[in-house]
Design a binder for these strands. Structure first.
Lengths: 184, 184
DNA sequence: GGGCACATGTAAGCTGTTACATGATTAA
DNA sequence: TTAATCATGTAACAGCTTACATGTGCCC
């Protein structure tokens, strides 16, 4: 699966749930897929244009007013299934926190502690966000066929956040026992 | 912190542990930072050239034979500390597994199960790899000043892997109770 | 002498972000 | 009427991968 196809997958997938504008697409992806996916306008609009050219989505509503809704077509749904069945594109990891900690000797234990505390705070926030999404899903009577799958990704976010919190607590305890770096 | 600087951080950081060739740099980054960081030759060599130009690293050994060792300079160490102190560059998440699961209704429960099982296997492998690294660190009498920090990143990898395994087991149980998608 | 690991580098090209330009609609 | 939000798009650029070109040293 070429990299660019992953954006097509995300866009077609979101439109398979409901038709919406490019702008709404961005918000939805940010709010709902935010903890594991990301797309910017610079990708969404060209991708929509390309998908329209291929007949995989349809533009509805007045183009002249500058606001149009996109809907997935039958071909689009078929293409989506094809794309989803392709092997995952392994993401290249780039964790700035762990990079800094790895060279923490140069940075010193106090700065490391600050970084870990910040990471812990972000994880706690994420946990709260996941709870909110879970609640939303419970109260939403639409999309009952999709929601079991959505909950799987929420659960993944919760597990990851809890793991981060547990690790941060351990790490803070370990850092407290480390000597301050004597800057040579 | 501009994005390109992150590669400089990784390169300077690795050279702060010990001098080595560009080739060795790549191997070290892949083996030791592999679970949270990534650099390719296409970045490493230009970065080394740029760092040399700025006097942050020194090239030692016969250039003509095609094999030279790079060592960090005093200025390089200062620069490294400066870079490490910069705020983290938030990585844009792109998790192909969760993207597929989110649209799992289109993909069907069986294909989802295969994906989750594959992810579980990868996590089990990662856990084994982390154990091996831990063992290596225990037996290594060099770098005793750095190793406490290295262990923090190993621990992060272990927590993440265990969280993935726990999530995968829950998810597989949940998927077993889902009806197969009737393809319309 | 053949193959493999070590070693250095470049160039093409893709992916993705950011900043900008533009305008409609809505609420204060 | 002004500001915010909704909405669409483009262009420049940064970042990174991949493939290629090239050569050495060592072991079998």
């Amino acid at each position: 699966m070429a990299r660019g196809d992953q954006t097509q997958t995300a866009v077609l997938g979101a439109l398979s749930v409901m038709p919406m504008t490019g702008y709404a697409l961005r918000s939805e992806i940010q709010n709902t897929l935010g903890h594991f996916w990301n797309e910017s306008f610079g990708q969404i609009y060209p991708t929509l244009a390309e998908l329209e050219r291929q007949g995989l989505v349809e533009r509805r509503g007045a183009e002249r007013t500058g606001s149009s809704t996109f809907a997935i077509t039958g071909d689009g749904t078929a293409r989506l299934r094809e794309l989803l069945a392709q092997p995952e594109q392994p993401a290249r990891p780039r964790n700035g926190l762990l990079l800094r900690l790895f060279f923490g000797r140069q940075l010193g234990p106090e700065a490391c502690r600050d970084l870990v505390e910040a990471a812990r705070r972000r994880a706690v926030e994420q946990l709260a966000h996941m709870s909110a999404v879970r609640e939303e899903l419970r109260n939403d009577q639409q999309n009952t066929a999709d929601s079991p799958y959505w909950l799987l990704t929420v659960s993944a976010g919760e597990h990851a956040a809890r793991a981060t919190i547990a690790w941060a607590d351990e790490t803070l305890a370990a850092l407290a026992n480390l000597p301050a770096e004597e800057n040579p």
